[in-house]
Design a protein around this nucleic acid. Structure first.
Lengths: 386, 386
DNA sequence: CTGAAAGCGCTAACAT
DNA sequence: ATGTTAGCGCTTTCAG
């Protein structure tokens, strides 16, 4: 017997339809054929429940039509919105998306980059939490197109999309200062990560700008999680530093901080104003709703995906030449920065604004971006990308 | 030239090392060889940065060592914890996990099951939100092992792990009744989904058990999201039904409900007790912390993964025979139910308990499962699996 | 329009 | 221990 057991293959179909495997392939790929042949092949395929073996197809074609997205933490809503936006651009193009949670382990990140070489996916979007020399080396020699979501040194030779979290942090702190807060705590994630160090820089710059002396004990660095936020804010509050507000490096930390404040009987924002970052769904879900700096997670995901597919499909090639292909080998390296926006909500708005919010909220949808009275009329403030 | 351009292949290495491709393959797979040969091959491979083409390897071996997990919503923390637990069992075995968010679209779920036939992954864990005849048909003819996380009719012929959400819902409602609440609202997800209908059943049973008449207007069905929860709870509260508590079909809904209550100036739990479901991190992050029914998401993920790998690797085959392989063709069909547990927190505990909690929370880690005074001393109540 | 045949990169007989 | 070869399932020349 020629084709037995196992799932049907082109050969099985060919036999059933009485044609050659070449005809089967052609028909199944819509490459024409005599009406009669087409009909017979399609019938046989349908009857036998034929599904092309994608692995074989990939081996032959050299492409898998699969893309990989590697993020530090699948539980972080900011990455979830990146995933959603990436999907919206890749799915219509017929790509499958492989999701990889690296848990912020550098070695795991490197593995992901290297695994591009195993031809399992055609391209990669990665959010490295740290960028070491090893990362740069791996990225430089990556065997397929890569787009980094994060800050890379100039001339890294890889497409990237970054948030301007330095400006974003400044937006947050300036907002607190404008509200009259002077003892501004900072709950950061790990300080040795790119986001962590940038946010710390922005925090310090904004303080300096406001003529406030930096006090190291006002900063607590931990981990990007709700639990860490609660613990860190707790320490800050219990230390008797007279904190009147706290800027948190992401919404999870801010949620934890709000929790710690509540546990201590503090009112938000009266006793403690809280600002988060990422403007994830957590910010809206929290009570009071969190003022947060939108770093454009979804937007960054979308842009990264667009840059990646541009490398993959030289759809509308520039009239200049046939440049395309692997990471930065063809075409010039892209480097986009997404500007941050401050979204003001009840966690920093005064009691007056809080009342307004509450009133309006009786009628869905609840209002967003309510400006605190007499402070800032445009609640959404774009930061300058530096 | 024999091997040029492109990435190095076994042939490239063979030439560089001066051996045959078979030797390259053997050495690289640790199948022995003369020390000298091994050294030369390894050196050549390292120098050329050789990475085996996994697609070719899969085509040859018939397995990809990739597994797929399909869930309705990647933004739901309950699924995130499933992902984490699945990883803990599959990763050590060398499997890669492909994550797929179906957005609760039935057609997408069917596609995922069918796509098992394209040989892209060796097995599938799926959480269908609805189980139609089409689902059962697709599952029955799946061309690889599948484990369903969810309730399947008896004799479905597929391994499954289910939560007992009927009992879980009863646990929640009984708890509210024990607390003296009588006007218990119910914020459900879509009623035509399996989780939705089961939770509704549990809600009604527990009411009946307590001698409370069912009032259809106390139930609002929407969508499993924070926004939907806020909107639904808002309608419930604005309808003047005298609601004193609300049971929500998941934590996202509960968070939304809590938000709606706050917006209306209601205190939790004094004016409105709130119970969620899934005991996700949202329950802890919320303020006040949410009482929630733990449906064992992580546990279900772990069990499903274990059942799946058991099909994949007949590691320790039962002495009976060599039964194994595809979904339920070999070996008997597994069907496990995970018992629910009620986790009591401040959103239902009386003011007294809330104080206790608040006190204790000053010293990390914050206490969990605080029993409301005089109601239930064992805060964690296992439900009977029916 | 159709069929025969090559070959994607790899592994595993099989032969030496 | 090593080399030769077949073949996984598919697409795509190349003849006819």
């Amino acid at each position: 017997m020629t084709s037995s057991g196992g799932p049907p293959t082109v050969e099985t179909i060919a036999e059933a339809a009485g044609v050659s495997i070449a005809s089967v392939s052609r028909v199944l790929n819509g490459h024409g054929g005599r009406p009669d042949t087409v009909r017979r092949v399609e019938r046989a395929a349908a009857e036998l429940g034929y599904v092309p073996n994608r692995v074989a197809r990939s081996l032959k074609g050299g492409r898998t039509r699969q893309l990989t997205f590697a993020m530090p933490d699948i539980g972080n809503p900011a990455y979830v919105s990146m995933v959603r936006q990436i999907q919206t651009v890749t799915k219509p193009l017929g790509y499958r998306l492989l999701l990889h949670s690296t848990d912020a382990v550098a070695e795991d990140e490197l593995d992901v980059v290297r695994s591009l070489a195993d031809r399992t996916s055609d391209g990669l979007i990665i959010c490295p939490i740290r960028v070491t020399d090893a990362h740069l080396a791996a990225l430089a020699t990556a065997s397929g197109p890569v787009v980094v979501i994060g800050s890379l040194p100039e001339g890294a030779g890889v497409d990237s999309v970054r948030a301007d979290s330095v400006s974003g942090a400044m937006l947050a702190v300036r907002h607190l200062v404008a509200l009259g807060r002077r003892r501004i705590g900072f709950v950061n994630g790990p300080a040795d990560t790119v986001p962590g160090s940038h946010r710390a820089t922005g925090y310090r710059s904004a303080l300096a700008e406001a003529g406030l002396a930096p006090e190291p004990e006002l900063t607590v660095a931990t981990d990007f999680s709700v639990e860490a936020g609660a613990a860190a804010a707790g320490r800050l509050l219990d230390a008797g530093l007279g904190i009147d507000s706290v800027f948190c490096a992401n919404d999870q930390l801010a949620l934890g901080a709000a929790h710690a404040a509540h546990d201590r009987g503090l009112r938000i924002p009266e006793d403690l104003a809280v600002v988060g970052m990422d403007d994830s769904e957590l910010a809206r879900a929290s009570h009071p709703a969190l003022t947060s700096v939108d770093l454009g997670s979804g937007e960054r995901g979308r842009l990264a995906a667009e840059m990646l597919v541009a490398r993959l499909e030289p759809a509308a090639p520039a009239p200049g030449g046939p440049a395309s292909g692997g990471s930065a080998s063809g075409g010039s390296v892209g480097r986009v920065t997404v500007a941050p926006r401050l979204v003001v909500r009840a966690s920093t708005a005064g009691p007056g604004a809080a009342t307004v919010r509450q009133e309006a909220a009786r009628h869905a949808p609840p209002p967003e971006r309510v400006a605190p009275p007499g402070v800032d009329t445009s609640a959404v403030c774009a930061g300058s990308a530096t």
